[in-house]
Amino acid sequence: MTDALEIQRVEYAYSRDVALRGVSLGVDAGEIVAVTGPSGCGKSTLVHCAAGILRPQAGTVTLAGRNLAELTEAERTRVRRTQVGIVLQFGQLVPDLSLKDNVALPLLLEGHHAAAARRAALGWLERVGVAEDSEALPSELSGGQNQRAAVARALVTGPAVVFADEPTGSLDSRAGEQMMELLVASARDGGAALVIVTHDNLIAAYADREVRLRDGVVQHEVRLS
């Protein structure tokens, strides 16, 4: 089986703190991995390195077969745009654009035809269950609805890996679980691997594998499936 993501001995230090001290992690195609651990242990930093948003100071990240360190910034952006989907805690949708345009944006950036991009966006909004609000602005909808649109935006380009950093952090436990079910189903649907950062055991339990960080190192890795 080809790996969707291969992280080897990645190190990352901010100006003041060392956040990652040599983390290795492989994610198979279609696999669901939960990254857990106490606050400040480096979960977000790991995800940002893995998604090609931050450049690790040491170690390698191989995403969909491409070693990110060997790519130019433009190539990295392209890999990120086509192979990575990202869902953050607050959705982070553009407040001035409708849900549909928000979801279409990655495709439009990729150079797709506007009509086709919007059709694909609508299709994904349908799958995540907010199609009737496709013309609404993010501010007119609940956090959960925004989060659903963010899932659609993450999956619309058909990425190899979807990263979700505390996607349920701002939802109540029931809505959080529904969100998680949606993420898992959507990732399956789109054939993407899913890396989910969470504090919540009930959310982590959806994963095939748990990777627990502590102080920038992997404390343990257990298989759940």
Binding site: I53, R78, I86, L88, V94, P95, E110
Partner: peptide
């Protein structure tokens, strides 16, 4: 005001 949304767009290649 929109920095977190713009940072997210940056991930999708809008630099």
């Amino acid at each position: 005001d929109q920095r977190s949304q713009l940072a997210a767009l940056n991930v999708f290649g809008m630099g």
